[in-house]
Nucleic acid binder design. Structure first.
Lengths: 229, 229
DNA sequence: TTTTGGGTGAACAATTTGTAAAAACGAAGG
DNA sequence: CCTTCGTTTTTACAAATTGTTCACCCAAAA
Protein backbone atom coordinates (compact mmCIF):
# COMPACT_ATOMS: atom_id res chain seq x y z
CA UNK A 1 0.00 0.00 0.00
CA UNK A 2 1.89 3.02 -1.31
CA UNK A 3 1.91 6.28 0.57
CA UNK A 4 0.60 9.29 -1.31
CA UNK A 5 2.55 12.51 -1.56
CA UNK A 6 0.84 15.70 -2.67
CA UNK A 7 3.06 18.19 -4.46
CA UNK A 8 1.82 21.78 -4.58
CA UNK A 9 4.06 23.53 -7.08
CA UNK A 10 3.39 25.74 -10.07
CA UNK A 11 6.65 25.14 -11.90
CA UNK A 12 6.03 22.14 -14.09
CA UNK A 13 9.65 21.21 -14.44
CA UNK A 14 10.17 20.96 -10.75
CA UNK A 15 6.88 19.20 -10.13
CA UNK A 16 7.52 16.59 -12.80
CA UNK A 17 11.02 16.00 -11.63
CA UNK A 18 9.82 15.45 -8.09
CA UNK A 19 7.11 13.16 -9.30
CA UNK A 20 9.54 11.09 -11.29
CA UNK A 21 11.77 10.54 -8.31
CA UNK A 22 9.09 9.91 -5.78
CA UNK A 23 7.32 7.44 -8.00
CA UNK A 24 10.56 5.62 -8.53
CA UNK A 25 10.85 5.36 -4.78
CA UNK A 26 7.43 3.81 -4.56
CA UNK A 27 5.27 6.74 -3.59
CA UNK A 28 1.97 7.62 -5.17
CA UNK A 29 2.21 11.20 -6.37
CA UNK A 30 -0.32 13.90 -7.11
CA UNK A 31 0.41 17.43 -8.31
CA UNK A 32 -1.53 20.62 -7.68
CA UNK A 33 -0.48 23.75 -9.66
CA UNK A 34 -1.74 26.39 -7.23
CA UNK A 35 -2.70 26.91 -3.63
CA UNK A 36 -6.46 26.54 -3.93
CA UNK A 37 -6.23 23.35 -5.95
CA UNK A 38 -3.67 22.19 -3.42
CA UNK A 39 -6.10 22.50 -0.56
CA UNK A 40 -8.85 20.88 -2.59
CA UNK A 41 -6.69 17.91 -3.55
CA UNK A 42 -5.47 17.64 -0.01
CA UNK A 43 -9.02 17.14 1.22
CA UNK A 44 -9.80 14.60 -1.47
CA UNK A 45 -6.62 12.57 -1.31
CA UNK A 46 -5.68 12.73 2.35
CA UNK A 47 -2.04 12.23 1.41
CA UNK A 48 0.56 10.97 3.84
CA UNK A 49 2.67 14.04 3.24
CA UNK A 50 2.58 17.39 1.44
CA UNK A 51 5.44 19.05 -0.44
CA UNK A 52 4.53 22.69 -0.59
CA UNK A 53 6.15 25.49 -2.57
CA UNK A 54 6.13 28.86 -0.84
CA UNK A 55 5.72 30.93 -4.00
CA UNK A 56 2.40 30.02 -5.50
CA UNK A 57 -0.26 31.78 -7.57
CA UNK A 58 -3.49 32.38 -5.69
CA UNK A 59 -3.06 31.36 -2.11
CA UNK A 60 0.62 31.29 -1.18
CA UNK A 61 2.39 28.45 0.58
CA UNK A 62 1.99 29.84 4.08
CA UNK A 63 -1.73 30.17 3.55
CA UNK A 64 -2.03 26.62 2.28
CA UNK A 65 0.06 25.44 5.19
CA UNK A 66 -2.15 27.16 7.74
CA UNK A 67 -5.30 25.89 6.08
CA UNK A 68 -4.09 22.31 6.04
CA UNK A 69 -2.75 22.56 9.53
CA UNK A 70 -6.09 23.83 10.76
CA UNK A 71 -7.72 20.59 9.78
CA UNK A 72 -5.02 17.96 9.94
CA UNK A 73 -1.65 16.98 11.32
CA UNK A 74 -0.42 15.65 7.98
CA UNK A 75 3.30 16.37 7.67
CA UNK A 76 4.18 19.34 5.49
CA UNK A 77 7.54 20.10 3.94
CA UNK A 78 7.95 23.59 2.53
CA UNK A 79 10.00 24.32 -0.57
CA UNK A 80 11.52 27.76 -0.35
CA UNK A 81 13.83 29.79 -2.55
CA UNK A 82 15.72 31.61 0.14
CA UNK A 83 17.38 29.99 3.09
CA UNK A 84 16.65 33.00 5.24
CA UNK A 85 16.23 32.34 8.90
CA UNK A 86 13.14 34.47 8.57
CA UNK A 87 11.56 31.89 6.29
CA UNK A 88 12.43 29.08 8.59
CA UNK A 89 10.91 30.81 11.57
CA UNK A 90 7.79 31.59 9.62
CA UNK A 91 7.65 28.02 8.42
CA UNK A 92 7.81 26.59 11.88
CA UNK A 93 5.30 29.13 13.16
CA UNK A 94 2.88 28.24 10.39
CA UNK A 95 3.20 24.59 11.27
CA UNK A 96 5.49 23.16 8.62
CA UNK A 97 7.44 20.10 9.69
CA UNK A 98 10.50 20.85 7.67
CA UNK A 99 11.60 22.98 4.84
CA UNK A 100 13.97 22.55 1.94
CA UNK A 101 15.80 25.31 0.13
CA UNK A 102 15.93 25.46 -3.67
CA UNK A 103 17.76 24.40 -5.55
CA UNK A 104 17.56 21.06 -3.87
CA UNK A 105 18.93 17.67 -4.61
CA UNK A 106 16.66 14.69 -4.85
CA UNK A 107 18.76 12.87 -2.31
CA UNK A 108 17.96 15.52 0.20
CA UNK A 109 14.29 15.58 -0.58
CA UNK A 110 13.98 11.84 -0.16
CA UNK A 111 15.96 11.91 3.04
CA UNK A 112 13.78 14.62 4.49
CA UNK A 113 10.58 12.92 3.48
CA UNK A 114 11.70 9.77 5.23
CA UNK A 115 12.79 11.69 8.28
CA UNK A 116 9.53 13.59 8.55
CA UNK A 117 7.43 10.49 8.09
CA UNK A 118 9.45 8.70 10.71
CA UNK A 119 9.04 11.57 13.13
CA UNK A 120 5.31 11.58 12.55
CA UNK A 121 5.20 7.98 13.59
CA UNK A 122 4.18 7.00 10.08
CA UNK A 123 6.25 4.20 8.66
CA UNK A 124 8.28 5.69 5.84
CA UNK A 125 7.85 3.93 2.56
CA UNK A 126 10.91 1.81 2.86
CA UNK A 127 11.54 1.42 -0.81
CA UNK A 128 14.89 -0.26 -0.60
CA UNK A 129 17.28 1.75 -2.66
CA UNK A 130 19.19 -1.29 -3.71
CA UNK A 131 19.32 -2.88 -7.11
CA UNK A 132 20.76 -6.29 -7.78
CA UNK A 133 21.65 -7.69 -11.16
CA UNK A 134 23.90 -10.60 -11.97
CA UNK A 135 27.19 -9.92 -10.14
CA UNK A 136 26.22 -6.29 -9.67
CA UNK A 137 24.82 -4.61 -6.58
CA UNK A 138 23.92 -0.94 -6.60
CA UNK A 139 23.19 -0.02 -3.03
CA UNK A 140 22.16 3.59 -2.58
CA UNK A 141 21.56 3.20 1.13
CA UNK A 142 25.17 2.35 1.76
CA UNK A 143 26.22 4.23 -1.35
CA UNK A 144 28.23 1.25 -2.45
CA UNK A 145 28.81 -0.43 -5.73
CA UNK A 146 29.60 -4.11 -5.57
CA UNK A 147 30.88 -5.83 -8.68
CA UNK A 148 31.38 -9.55 -8.67
CA UNK A 149 31.49 -9.53 -4.88
CA UNK A 150 34.03 -6.76 -4.63
CA UNK A 151 33.33 -3.26 -3.47
CA UNK A 152 34.30 -0.75 -6.12
CA UNK A 153 34.86 2.80 -4.91
CA UNK A 154 32.62 4.94 -7.07
CA UNK A 155 32.08 8.69 -7.03
CA UNK A 156 28.58 9.97 -6.26
CA UNK A 157 27.60 11.15 -9.73
CA UNK A 158 28.51 7.83 -11.23
CA UNK A 159 26.53 6.01 -8.57
CA UNK A 160 23.49 8.15 -9.16
CA UNK A 161 23.74 7.87 -12.89
CA UNK A 162 24.04 4.12 -12.81
CA UNK A 163 21.26 3.80 -10.29
CA UNK A 164 19.03 5.95 -12.38
CA UNK A 165 19.67 4.01 -15.55
CA UNK A 166 19.43 0.65 -13.85
CA UNK A 167 16.21 1.35 -12.01
CA UNK A 168 14.43 1.25 -15.33
CA UNK A 169 16.34 -1.39 -17.26
CA UNK A 170 16.21 -1.28 -21.04
CA UNK A 171 14.74 2.17 -21.09
CA UNK A 172 16.66 4.69 -23.17
CA UNK A 173 17.40 8.07 -21.65
CA UNK A 174 18.60 11.02 -23.68
CA UNK A 175 21.56 12.91 -22.35
CA UNK A 176 19.31 15.84 -21.57
CA UNK A 177 16.94 13.65 -19.65
CA UNK A 178 19.81 12.33 -17.62
CA UNK A 179 21.14 15.80 -16.99
CA UNK A 180 17.69 16.85 -15.79
CA UNK A 181 17.02 13.84 -13.69
CA UNK A 182 20.41 13.05 -12.27
CA UNK A 183 22.16 16.38 -12.29
CA UNK A 184 19.06 18.40 -11.47
CA UNK A 185 16.67 20.62 -13.32
CA UNK A 186 18.80 23.68 -12.68
CA UNK A 187 21.93 22.25 -14.24
CA UNK A 188 23.30 23.94 -17.30
CA UNK A 189 26.18 22.21 -18.90
CA UNK A 190 27.55 20.22 -21.74
CA UNK A 191 25.80 17.00 -22.62
CA UNK A 192 29.17 15.36 -23.12
CA UNK A 193 29.48 15.30 -19.38
CA UNK A 194 27.20 12.33 -19.46
CA UNK A 195 29.47 10.55 -21.91
CA UNK A 196 32.40 10.86 -19.61
CA UNK A 197 30.54 9.46 -16.66
CA UNK A 198 29.26 6.59 -18.74
CA UNK A 199 32.75 5.91 -19.87
CA UNK A 200 34.04 5.74 -16.31
CA UNK A 201 31.23 3.45 -15.31
CA UNK A 202 32.03 1.16 -18.21
CA UNK A 203 35.60 0.87 -17.03
CA UNK A 204 34.33 -0.36 -13.70
CA UNK A 205 31.79 -2.73 -15.16
CA UNK A 206 33.80 -4.04 -18.07
CA UNK A 207 33.43 -7.72 -18.82
CA UNK A 208 31.79 -8.53 -15.53
CA UNK A 209 28.64 -10.10 -16.81
CA UNK A 210 26.91 -10.78 -20.08
CA UNK A 211 23.54 -10.39 -18.46
CA UNK A 212 23.57 -6.63 -18.65
CA UNK A 213 25.36 -3.79 -20.35
CA UNK A 214 25.54 -0.01 -20.41
CA UNK A 215 24.57 0.46 -24.00
CA UNK A 216 24.73 3.43 -26.34
CA UNK A 217 21.69 4.07 -28.48
CA UNK A 218 23.07 5.92 -31.40
CA UNK A 219 21.85 9.49 -31.78
CA UNK A 220 19.51 9.02 -28.82
CA UNK A 221 21.24 8.31 -25.54
CA UNK A 222 22.05 5.49 -23.15
CA UNK A 223 20.32 2.58 -21.52
CA UNK A 224 21.09 -0.14 -19.05
CA UNK A 225 20.26 -3.21 -21.02
CA UNK A 226 19.38 -6.41 -19.24
CA UNK A 227 19.09 -9.75 -20.98
CA UNK A 228 15.76 -11.51 -20.87
CA UNK A 229 13.47 -8.91 -19.37
CA UNK B 1 14.59 -4.44 35.96
CA UNK B 2 15.16 -6.98 33.22
CA UNK B 3 12.41 -9.36 32.21
CA UNK B 4 13.23 -13.03 32.44
CA UNK B 5 12.68 -15.42 29.57
CA UNK B 6 12.66 -19.15 30.19
CA UNK B 7 13.80 -21.29 27.29
CA UNK B 8 12.76 -24.92 27.37
CA UNK B 9 14.81 -26.58 24.67
CA UNK B 10 16.94 -29.73 24.60
CA UNK B 11 19.11 -28.77 21.65
CA UNK B 12 22.02 -26.88 23.13
CA UNK B 13 22.92 -25.08 19.94
CA UNK B 14 19.52 -23.57 19.55
CA UNK B 15 19.19 -22.75 23.22
CA UNK B 16 22.53 -20.98 23.34
CA UNK B 17 21.82 -19.05 20.20
CA UNK B 18 18.55 -17.85 21.62
CA UNK B 19 20.20 -16.96 24.88
CA UNK B 20 22.87 -14.96 23.12
CA UNK B 21 20.36 -12.84 21.27
CA UNK B 22 17.96 -12.33 24.09
CA UNK B 23 20.67 -11.30 26.50
CA UNK B 24 21.91 -8.79 23.99
CA UNK B 25 18.43 -7.34 23.96
CA UNK B 26 18.53 -6.98 27.70
CA UNK B 27 16.51 -9.99 28.78
CA UNK B 28 17.51 -12.28 31.60
CA UNK B 29 17.62 -15.80 30.21
CA UNK B 30 17.33 -19.21 31.78
CA UNK B 31 17.48 -22.54 29.98
CA UNK B 32 15.80 -25.81 30.86
CA UNK B 33 16.85 -28.91 28.86
CA UNK B 34 13.67 -30.94 29.31
CA UNK B 35 10.01 -30.67 30.14
CA UNK B 36 10.14 -31.53 33.80
CA UNK B 37 13.01 -29.16 34.54
CA UNK B 38 11.13 -26.61 32.49
CA UNK B 39 8.11 -26.74 34.77
CA UNK B 40 10.32 -26.68 37.84
CA UNK B 41 12.23 -23.62 36.68
CA UNK B 42 9.06 -21.95 35.65
CA UNK B 43 7.75 -22.19 39.22
CA UNK B 44 11.01 -20.89 40.67
CA UNK B 45 11.67 -18.06 38.28
CA UNK B 46 8.22 -16.83 37.41
CA UNK B 47 9.56 -15.62 34.04
CA UNK B 48 7.79 -12.97 31.98
CA UNK B 49 7.63 -15.34 29.03
CA UNK B 50 8.38 -18.93 28.05
CA UNK B 51 9.91 -20.12 24.80
CA UNK B 52 8.93 -23.75 24.55
CA UNK B 53 10.10 -26.41 22.15
CA UNK B 54 7.48 -28.96 21.18
CA UNK B 55 9.85 -31.92 20.88
CA UNK B 56 11.27 -32.54 24.33
CA UNK B 57 12.52 -35.56 26.27
CA UNK B 58 10.35 -36.42 29.23
CA UNK B 59 7.22 -34.33 29.20
CA UNK B 60 6.64 -32.91 25.69
CA UNK B 61 5.92 -29.29 24.87
CA UNK B 62 2.17 -29.66 24.93
CA UNK B 63 2.30 -31.17 28.37
CA UNK B 64 4.51 -28.38 29.69
CA UNK B 65 2.23 -25.84 28.09
CA UNK B 66 -0.88 -27.29 29.72
CA UNK B 67 0.83 -27.52 33.10
CA UNK B 68 1.99 -23.93 33.00
CA UNK B 69 -1.33 -22.71 31.69
CA UNK B 70 -3.10 -24.48 34.54
CA UNK B 71 -1.33 -22.32 37.05
CA UNK B 72 -0.49 -19.07 35.27
CA UNK B 73 -1.26 -16.78 32.35
CA UNK B 74 2.41 -16.25 31.55
CA UNK B 75 2.78 -15.88 27.76
CA UNK B 76 4.08 -18.97 25.99
CA UNK B 77 5.61 -19.13 22.53
CA UNK B 78 5.97 -22.62 21.06
CA UNK B 79 8.88 -23.60 18.85
CA UNK B 80 7.83 -26.23 16.35
CA UNK B 81 9.54 -28.09 13.58
CA UNK B 82 6.58 -28.49 11.30
CA UNK B 83 4.31 -25.75 10.20
CA UNK B 84 1.37 -28.15 10.07
CA UNK B 85 -2.01 -26.69 10.68
CA UNK B 86 -2.49 -29.59 13.04
CA UNK B 87 0.24 -28.25 15.31
CA UNK B 88 -1.14 -24.79 15.21
CA UNK B 89 -4.57 -25.94 16.21
CA UNK B 90 -3.16 -28.06 18.96
CA UNK B 91 -1.03 -25.17 20.09
CA UNK B 92 -3.90 -22.78 20.38
CA UNK B 93 -6.04 -25.42 22.09
CA UNK B 94 -3.32 -25.99 24.64
CA UNK B 95 -3.10 -22.28 25.34
CA UNK B 96 0.06 -21.10 23.59
CA UNK B 97 0.12 -17.43 22.68
CA UNK B 98 2.09 -17.78 19.52
CA UNK B 99 4.21 -20.30 17.77
CA UNK B 100 7.30 -20.09 15.62
CA UNK B 101 8.38 -22.62 13.03
CA UNK B 102 11.98 -23.79 12.86
CA UNK B 103 14.25 -22.80 11.32
CA UNK B 104 13.62 -19.29 12.53
CA UNK B 105 15.43 -16.01 12.35
CA UNK B 106 16.40 -14.21 15.50
CA UNK B 107 14.83 -11.01 14.33
CA UNK B 108 11.55 -12.80 14.03
CA UNK B 109 11.81 -14.36 17.44
CA UNK B 110 12.49 -10.98 18.99
CA UNK B 111 9.62 -9.39 17.15
CA UNK B 112 7.23 -12.09 18.31
CA UNK B 113 8.41 -11.89 21.87
CA UNK B 114 7.78 -8.19 21.94
CA UNK B 115 4.45 -8.61 20.24
CA UNK B 116 3.31 -11.24 22.70
CA UNK B 117 4.47 -9.23 25.69
CA UNK B 118 2.71 -6.20 24.37
CA UNK B 119 -0.46 -8.17 23.80
CA UNK B 120 -0.26 -9.51 27.32
CA UNK B 121 -0.22 -5.98 28.59
CA UNK B 122 3.27 -6.50 29.95
CA UNK B 123 5.65 -3.75 28.91
CA UNK B 124 8.14 -5.27 26.52
CA UNK B 125 11.70 -4.78 27.61
CA UNK B 126 12.45 -1.47 26.00
CA UNK B 127 15.12 -1.96 23.43
CA UNK B 128 18.34 -1.57 25.31
CA UNK B 129 20.05 1.54 24.12
CA UNK B 130 23.36 -0.20 24.01
CA UNK B 131 25.35 -1.09 20.94
CA UNK B 132 28.33 -3.40 20.95
CA UNK B 133 30.83 -3.73 18.17
CA UNK B 134 34.31 -5.17 18.27
CA UNK B 135 36.13 -3.33 21.09
CA UNK B 136 33.46 -0.66 21.13
CA UNK B 137 30.52 -0.24 23.46
CA UNK B 138 28.08 2.60 22.99
CA UNK B 139 25.88 2.62 26.05
CA UNK B 140 23.20 5.28 25.91
CA UNK B 141 21.64 4.17 29.17
CA UNK B 142 24.80 4.93 31.09
CA UNK B 143 25.82 7.52 28.51
CA UNK B 144 29.21 5.90 28.34
CA UNK B 145 31.57 5.11 25.56
CA UNK B 146 33.92 2.18 26.08
CA UNK B 147 36.76 1.71 23.66
CA UNK B 148 38.95 -1.33 23.91
CA UNK B 149 37.83 -1.85 27.49
CA UNK B 150 38.51 1.68 28.59
CA UNK B 151 35.89 4.26 29.34
CA UNK B 152 36.35 7.32 27.17
CA UNK B 153 34.73 10.48 28.44
CA UNK B 154 32.55 11.67 25.60
CA UNK B 155 30.24 14.68 25.41
CA UNK B 156 26.55 14.05 24.81
CA UNK B 157 26.31 15.28 21.24
CA UNK B 158 29.13 13.04 20.18
CA UNK B 159 27.53 10.09 21.94
CA UNK B 160 24.22 10.69 20.26
CA UNK B 161 25.77 11.16 16.88
CA UNK B 162 27.77 7.98 17.13
CA UNK B 163 24.83 6.07 18.47
CA UNK B 164 22.63 7.26 15.69
CA UNK B 165 25.12 6.32 13.01
CA UNK B 166 25.94 3.00 14.59
CA UNK B 167 22.36 1.92 15.10
CA UNK B 168 22.05 1.47 11.36
CA UNK B 169 25.51 0.30 10.35
CA UNK B 170 26.58 0.91 6.76
CA UNK B 171 23.77 3.28 6.06
CA UNK B 172 24.79 6.69 4.82
CA UNK B 173 23.26 9.73 6.45
CA UNK B 174 23.49 13.16 4.92
CA UNK B 175 24.58 15.98 7.18
CA UNK B 176 21.10 17.40 7.05
CA UNK B 177 19.59 14.12 8.04
CA UNK B 178 21.91 13.95 10.98
CA UNK B 179 21.09 17.51 11.96
CA UNK B 180 17.42 16.65 11.70
CA UNK B 181 17.61 13.42 13.58
CA UNK B 182 20.29 14.07 16.16
CA UNK B 183 20.11 17.80 16.70
CA UNK B 184 16.38 18.08 16.07
CA UNK B 185 14.38 19.28 13.11
CA UNK B 186 14.18 22.79 14.48
CA UNK B 187 17.90 23.21 14.68
CA UNK B 188 19.27 26.25 12.90
CA UNK B 189 22.85 25.74 12.07
CA UNK B 190 25.63 24.94 9.78
CA UNK B 191 26.11 21.46 8.37
CA UNK B 192 29.81 21.68 9.11
CA UNK B 193 28.94 21.21 12.73
CA UNK B 194 28.53 17.56 11.93
CA UNK B 195 32.02 17.40 10.45
CA UNK B 196 33.57 18.69 13.61
CA UNK B 197 31.79 16.18 15.78
CA UNK B 198 32.78 13.39 13.45
CA UNK B 199 36.35 14.52 13.65
CA UNK B 200 36.34 14.41 17.44
CA UNK B 201 34.77 10.99 17.42
CA UNK B 202 37.44 9.79 15.04
CA UNK B 203 40.15 10.97 17.40
CA UNK B 204 38.62 8.82 20.10
CA UNK B 205 38.10 5.82 17.87
CA UNK B 206 41.29 6.00 15.87
CA UNK B 207 42.98 2.69 15.13
CA UNK B 208 40.95 0.77 17.65
CA UNK B 209 39.51 -1.87 15.38
CA UNK B 210 39.50 -2.77 11.74
CA UNK B 211 36.01 -4.17 12.03
CA UNK B 212 34.34 -0.82 11.82
CA UNK B 213 35.01 2.73 10.80
CA UNK B 214 33.40 6.13 10.70
CA UNK B 215 33.51 6.66 6.99
CA UNK B 216 33.01 9.70 4.82
CA UNK B 217 30.93 9.25 1.69
CA UNK B 218 32.04 12.05 -0.51
CA UNK B 219 29.36 14.58 -1.37
CA UNK B 220 26.81 12.56 0.54
CA UNK B 221 27.55 12.27 4.22
CA UNK B 222 28.82 9.82 6.81
CA UNK B 223 28.25 6.24 7.75
CA UNK B 224 29.36 3.80 10.39
CA UNK B 225 30.76 1.02 8.30
CA UNK B 226 31.01 -2.46 9.71
CA UNK B 227 32.95 -5.24 8.00
CA UNK B 228 31.10 -8.32 6.87
CA UNK B 229 27.48 -7.36 7.16
C1' DT C 1 32.85 9.19 -48.82
C1' DT C 2 30.71 12.41 -46.20
C1' DT C 3 28.47 13.70 -42.20
C1' DT C 4 27.11 13.27 -37.69
C1' DG C 5 27.56 11.44 -33.17
C1' DG C 6 30.35 9.00 -29.68
C1' DG C 7 34.80 7.43 -27.10
C1' DT C 8 38.61 8.92 -24.65
C1' DG C 9 42.53 11.03 -22.13
C1' DA C 10 44.07 14.79 -19.87
C1' DA C 11 43.93 19.43 -18.20
C1' DC C 12 41.48 22.25 -15.52
C1' DA C 13 37.65 23.84 -12.51
C1' DA C 14 34.66 23.29 -8.88
C1' DT C 15 33.11 21.22 -4.94
C1' DT C 16 33.53 18.95 -0.67
C1' DT C 17 36.00 17.66 3.40
C1' DG C 18 39.68 17.85 7.24
C1' DT C 19 41.32 20.56 10.62
C1' DA C 20 42.74 23.98 13.89
C1' DA C 21 41.50 27.75 16.25
C1' DA C 22 38.38 31.14 17.84
C1' DA C 23 33.94 32.43 19.34
C1' DA C 24 29.61 31.47 21.44
C1' DC C 25 26.97 29.18 24.62
C1' DG C 26 25.18 27.26 28.97
C1' DA C 27 25.17 25.19 33.38
C1' DA C 28 27.09 25.46 38.10
C1' DG C 29 28.98 27.88 41.67
C1' DG C 30 30.28 32.02 43.91
C1' DC D 1 24.57 38.79 38.43
C1' DC D 2 29.20 37.54 37.31
C1' DT D 3 32.76 34.11 36.48
C1' DT D 4 34.37 29.80 35.05
C1' DC D 5 34.79 25.68 32.63
C1' DG D 6 33.46 22.25 29.46
C1' DT D 7 30.90 21.80 25.33
C1' DT D 8 29.18 23.19 20.96
C1' DT D 9 29.25 25.99 16.88
C1' DT D 10 31.29 28.83 13.54
C1' DT D 11 34.94 30.20 10.64
C1' DA D 12 38.81 30.13 7.65
C1' DC D 13 41.94 27.89 4.89
C1' DA D 14 44.45 23.90 3.13
C1' DA D 15 43.92 19.40 1.12
C1' DA D 16 41.51 15.90 -1.24
C1' DT D 17 38.28 14.35 -4.47
C1' DT D 18 35.28 14.74 -8.07
C1' DG D 19 33.10 17.04 -12.11
C1' DT D 20 33.55 19.34 -16.56
C1' DT D 21 35.39 20.73 -20.68
C1' DC D 22 38.03 20.28 -24.74
C1' DA D 23 40.39 18.39 -28.56
C1' DC D 24 41.26 14.66 -31.26
C1' DC D 25 40.08 10.46 -33.22
C1' DC D 26 37.08 6.74 -34.32
C1' DA D 27 32.49 4.57 -35.52
C1' DA D 28 28.01 4.58 -37.49
C1' DA D 29 24.69 6.07 -40.72
C1' DA D 30 23.47 7.92 -45.22
Amino acid sequence: MAKTVLIVEDDNNIADLLRLYLEKEGYEVSIAPDGLKGVKQFRELQPALVLLDVMLPGMDGWGVCRTIRAESKTPIIMLTAKSETEDKVQGLKTGADDYITKPFEMKEVLARIEAVLRRSGIEPEKASRKLVFDKLVIDMDAFELTVDGKKIPTPPKEMELLYHLASTPNRVYTRNQLLDEVWGFDYFGDTRTVDVHVKRLREKLEGVSDQWELKTVWSVGYKFEVAGR
